[in-house]
């Protein structure tokens, strides 16, 4: 008979396949809108306003904001993929298909997270492709760029799962994205260098984790940023460890999914 470990390997692939099929089936809702809004950001802020802004941190303004715009798309899409998929599974009760099977909670979490990462990466790549209409997008440190984007996407996918574990209705899955995620992303230095801010606001910005991700990514692409790349990795990895532990604790306890 197959070992439980072997079963879980197949189960993991199955969850990921199902997750990708889910967001590809509704690609008009999941893949296209972020590309459209990124296009608008680049047109309006990059080209129209950017030409008046001049340089930011030694780069053309459009070059400066492109990494942030890509990252914003990655963050929101990773998050909303796992939040809507996991909540949908809970709401429609087909999460039970997983709960009755010999699938480990680590695999359930990893499967949903991998789905979120896939969507985050696909959308990120699409936004990067759109940016080529506006800039050359040469990547200074390819390995750093890829690592930062994959880890950030992982982090927000896990956060999405946690949100949906607690969510009781559809309102609950839009509160965090609208009132926490969006402000943190906009204030995370997409459109400006935090060095421009007065001391107090600069200090405050350093407790925003999103700042470390956007700057890590910007370092990967432009080769310079407000924050040292080492700190970026420390912050991202710490958050991943903390959130993954919380998510597993909740799944093991059956919070919101078992009575």
């Amino acid at each position: 008979m197959q070992s439980i470990a072997a079963i879980n390997v197949v189960a993991f692939k199955t969850i990921v396949t199902k997750e990708i099929r889910r967001f590809m089936r509704i690609w008009v809702q999941t893949i296209v809108p972020p590309a459209v809004s990124a296009l608008l950001y680049m047109m309006i802020f990059g080209t129209l306003i950017g030409s008046r802004v001049g340089e930011m941190d030694g780069h053309r303004y459009i070059d400066f904001i492109v990494p942030g715009i890509i990252m914003m798309a990655v963050i929101t899409n990773s998050y909303s993929n796992s939040v809507s998929s996991f909540f949908g599974a809970k709401f429609q009760h087909h999460l039970e298909e997983l709960l009755i099977a010999p699938v480990h909670n680590v695999v359930i979490l990893a499967g949903f997270v991998a789905g979120g990462v896939c969507r985050g990466l696909i959308v990120g790549a699409l936004v990067a492709a759109v940016s080529l209409f506006f800039t050359r997008l040469s990547v200074e440190n390819p390995l750093t760029t890829v690592l930062v984007v994959v880890l950030t996407s992982t982090l927000f996918s896990i956060a999405g799962v946690i949100n949906s574990v607690f969510a009781k209705g559809f309102d609950d899955i839009s509160i965090i994205p609208n009132f926490v995620l969006t402000p943190l992303t906009y204030l995370g230095g997409i459109f400006y260098s935090v060095k421009l801010l007065p001391d107090f606001w600069q200090g405050l910005s350093y407790i925003n984790p999103v700042l470390y991700m956007i700057n890590g990514f910007r370092f990967g692409i432009l080769g310079s940023s407000d924050i040292s790349i080492g700190w970026s990795f420390v912050v991202i990895l710490s958050f991943i460890v903390i959130l993954a532990s919380v998510a597993l604790y909740l799944l093991n306890k059956g919070v919101g999914i078992k009575s």
Binding site: V10, T17, K18, G88, Q92, E97, I100
Partner: peptide
């Protein structure tokens, strides 16, 4: 155990084939 629950609990947007193949995958069937 195989379970047929009282309430419908499959993803209504999925096709029957996908529903079955996915469930099989959860039990390690490639």
């Amino acid at each position: 155990i195989g379970l047929v629950p009282q309430e419908f609990n499959f993803n209504v947007f999925e096709s029957p084939v996908n529903i079955l193949v996915t469930q099989a995958g959860y039990y390690g069937i490639p």
